[in-house]
Design a protein around this nucleic acid. Structure first.
Lengths: 165, 165
DNA sequence: GCAAGGTAGTTCGATATCAAACCATCTTGC
DNA sequence: GCAAGATGGTTTGATATCGAACTACCTTGC
């Protein structure tokens, strides 16, 4: 494969061996590299989790819940950066599988709070274990640049993140 | 029951002003920061593009096409890192709006090739302009670390990327 | 008190994505 | 030639996501 961009004269095309190269217009765009890196690494995690019958998409939800006694869907929505309407279905799924439980908020009839069940906690722990393994690989890849990487990513998130900065 | 847990003494929760803090378990995970940075920055781009009535999701497709005379859905799929079945609907949409045109492959009845139309090219240029503006902000944020950032992201993509490395 | 406006959660419609099953066609081995 | 297997593209079904519209309930101003 020796795809390593060696001496290929032209460029930008898919190489014969099916490798996907970076289109010329994207080469210098941070956003592009960010996207590809995120997608590929997340999918690797998702595949690993999927094999163990775990839903990778639930990981962040469960983890956030694992750190609090209980919270409302709206709080979760803010913390996870997902729309409230997205949470409705996610929480329904988690609830259906007995990973969380809802309890009514006596002080506000509209609202309820969710908390992890024992099963939920176990699922969270298993997912976290997988995530940590993957992140160890990211650590290796980042090497001495890890601190810089996290700092830059943090600045990006802060800059483009939630309006109330 | 005042789920609001008002006097919250502990930390790590969403701060009063709705700020979303990084859950403790995620603080040290590169994958988390990667995800958040990518999501927030992409959404900023998508919002900007959306306001101009441009579909951000089409940007990479159109750009890849802009650099080649024509290609088949399968090639596009490999280069863009999307499943072939995903391309089916995207190409249908692009075609419906006259941004690309399909022409049969005389040598293989199963296949066809797509190419940008003039409108497609214009749309690509407009999207690219927006993307570049956004990427300029990413450049500023990365500052002197840009090269390191792109290098690390590239290594991540290469490591977790397509099987045939 | 009560009308007006705000907030919590849901529903619905659109888009994007993948994976698996599928059909039609092409290529290969013999 | 032709059967078997590979390949190109589509269909279908599941998940995830957002935003807008909606219902029910709460809070405020007066």
């Amino acid at each position: 494969m020796a795809v390593e961009t060696s001496t290929r004269p032209d460029a930008h095309t898919a190489s014969a061996d099916g490798e996907m190269l970076v289109p010329a217009m994207f080469r210098n765009l941070i956003g592009y590299h960010l996207r590809v890196a995120q997608e590929t690494s997340f999918q690797a995690f998702a595949r690993a989790a999927g094999k163990a019958d775990l839903k990778p998409g639930w990981y962040s939800l469960l983890t956030v819940l694992a750190e609090r006694e209980s919270m409302t869907p709206s709080e979760l929505s803010r913390i996870c950066g997902r729309d409230r309407s997205t949470l409705t279905s996610s929480l329904k799924a988690l609830s259906r599988r007995g990973l969380i439980e809802r309890r009514p908020n006596l002080a506000d009839q509209r609202s309820y709070s969710v908390r992890l069940t024992e099963n939920g906690r176990r699922m969270q722990e298993r997912l976290h274990a997988i995530a940590v393994v993957y992140d160890r690989r990211l650590d290796e890849i980042a090497g001495k640049d890890k601190a810089v990487l996290i700092a830059v990513l943090g600045r990006i998130a802060a800059t483009f993140g939630p309006p109330q900065d």
